[in-house]
Simulated scan of single mutants.
Amino acid sequence: MRIIRFLNGNGTPQLAALTDENQVFELPYKDLLTMVEKAKQKNVTALALVQEFIQLSLPLEAELKDLTLLVPIEAPEVWAAGVTYEKSRDERNYEATGGKLNASTFYDKVYDAERPELFFKSSAARTIGPDKEVYLRSDSNWQIPEPELGMVLNREGEVIGYTIGNDMSCRDIEGENPLYLPQAKIWKNSCSIGPAIRLAETVDDPYQFQIICRIYRGGSKVFEDSASTSQLKRELGELVSYLVRENTVFDGTVLLTGTCIVPPHDFTLLDGDRIEIEIPGIGILNNPVKSQVQQPS
Rank of each mutant, 00 (worst) to 15 (best):
E276N: 07
Y242K: 10
P147W: 12
S291M: 13
E91L: 08
G219V: 15
D271P: 14
I173W: 15
V262A: 13
I277Q: 06
V244H: 00
S226E: 12
A80E: 13
A196D: 03
M35P: 01
E224D: 09
L136V: 04
K65F: 05
A80C: 12
D20N: 10
N166L: 13
G258D: 12
V249W: 11
E63P: 02
E224Y: 15
Q55E: 10
C170P: 05
C213A: 13
A80S: 14
L49M: 07
A124R: 04
P130H: 08
D225G: 05
L269E: 00
Q23K: 01
S138K: 14
E174N: 12
L49V: 00
S291Y: 13
L181K: 11
V289H: 00
V289C: 03
K121N: 08
I215A: 06
S220V: 04
F119V: 00
V83C: 00
G283F: 07
N286Q: 01
F119K: 08
I279R: 06
D131F: 09
T248Q: 04
V240R: 03
E52G: 07
C191A: 11
L136G: 09
G218E: 02
D225L: 06
D204G: 06
S138N: 11
C213I: 11
E174W: 03
Q295K: 14
S123Q: 05
Y85E: 06
Y216H: 09
A80Q: 00
A196S: 10
S190T: 05
Q41V: 02
G99M: 01
K42G: 03
A113I: 05
T84S: 07
D90N: 12
G11K: 07
S190Y: 02
G98L: 12
Q292D: 08
G237I: 12
S297P: 04
Y111S: 04
P13F: 03
I211D: 06
P280I: 11
K40I: 04
S88M: 15
V254R: 02
K87F: 14
I128G: 01
R155P: 10
E37D: 12
N154Y: 09
P206Y: 13
R245E: 15
F223P: 06
R198E: 05
S88E: 15
L18I: 06
S230M: 03
I186T: 14
P13Y: 14
L64Q: 08
V36P: 01
S297E: 01
V110H: 08
A103D: 04
V289I: 08
R198W: 10
E174V: 07
L179C: 14
Q231G: 13
G165D: 04
K100W: 03
L70G: 04
R217D: 14
S230P: 03
G175F: 08
W79V: 08
T248K: 09
R5V: 07
T34F: 04
A125P: 02
Q292S: 12
P178Y: 08
G98E: 02
P288H: 09
G82Y: 11
K121F: 00
K132F: 11
D271N: 15
N10V: 06
L64R: 03
N177Y: 07
T19F: 12
R217P: 13
P280W: 08
K132P: 02
Y85W: 11
F6Q: 01
Y216G: 07
S57Q: 10
S57G: 13
E114C: 10
